[in-house]
Amino acid sequence: MPLEFDRAILGQEFDRVEGDPVTVDELVAFARALGETEPCYVDPAHPELVAHPTFVVRYRGRKFLPDTLPDPLKTRMSFDAGKDIEFGVPIRAGDRISVTSSLHDIYEKTGRSGSMTFVVVRFTIRNQDGALVGTIDNRMLYKR
């Protein structure tokens, strides 16, 4: 039976968080863990030090899912099925990053392993100037 839910819950913001200033150590540790050697990512003294592009995935807010998630999904195990990222301006040391979370979409698919529901949470991430750092659509898979 298809999942029934009120589509008015889509697009609703359910979390908004502003983080502490980004540190040089955080930028360097992240890039080194990916095996990066480019000085602008891993040299703490580099004048143009910036975050590795995927550093933006660190920002998830405090709540990963909204309270309005349809009840049948709340008790099912979920898996991270993938992400779509639109990259904006680079993150630099000292930036204060804010993340806004909204429920972007819920849809169902039937595959070889049966019926699956996907929940897409959108994280919109900005720096202290309001510039867009990135938009991340995170797809969570719920199996029946």
Partner: peptide, 20 residues
């Protein structure tokens, strides 16, 4: 992303979508 930047240069990736 590291693979792309080694090929195309730093700061060139505009969008990426993945399925795990």
């Amino acid at each position: 992303t590291r693979l792309i930047e080694a090929w195309a240069g730093r700061g060139t990736v505009r969008r990426m979508g993945t399925t795990f």
